[in-house]
Amino acid sequence: MSIDPTSLKRRGFLYRVLAEAGAEFGEIGGAAVALRYRGSIEEETHKARHLAIADLSPLPRCGFKGNGAVEWLQSQGLDIGPDSNKAYRQPNGALAARLAPTEIFLIDDLGGEGRLSARLDAAWSWGKEKPRKPCGYPMPRADSHAWFALAGAESPAMFSKICGVDLRTHRFPDLAIAQTSVAKMNAIVIREDRGGVPGYHLLADSASAEYLWACVIDAMEEFGGAAVGLEALRRLGGP
């Protein structure tokens, strides 16, 4: 059963656009999330295997930056490797995207409860040592960046229309990151396949979320792509 997104305090940047396109919303962690569209869920999952976009902006994400930030996250039990521009998968399904040697963008799992973000948020403090031990600083990302998930076999072909970096699956491996220009906007692209279907996270300035959404919908049109809800994405399977 769909809820009215305006009945909740937290909504995505695009909820009006999605509602107009027929999205049915549900509550996850106090936020209105587009879970599915009109029609059967099997049909929607089939679309996600071909080419689809989902708005995950209401789901939790966070970041940490600065000298000592990576070491602090590792001390909190996160598995983060040495390479920049690579995402590291955590046991609960979250991704720690290493954007630079001292910058991590964390996107939580598709469960949407934001357990990792909440735990880190509660654990972080400047520390009491004097002089202070460098531990970086939190970098809130939930309001700065819109978060879209792209899925489907045709998604690399669609990206070639709006992005100069070669994102084809044989050139851009799973969990690779490209910080580049997408539809003339600065954006972060992270590849994460689900159930053997190519997938990408697209993170970009939230103030232009409607513009970017419209660009991607337009670019998907020639391939028969469509907007899908979070449920279809979950049904593709695990990473």
Binding site: S84, N85, G164, V165, A178, Q179, T180, S181
Partner: peptide, 17 residues
């Protein structure tokens, strides 16, 4: 398009610089 090689991100379109 002209390509420039960014030491952090690799080869990119010159419009990104």
């Amino acid at each position: 398009m002209k390509i420039m090689n960014c030491p952090l991100n690799g080869p990119r379109n010159i419009s990104e610089f």
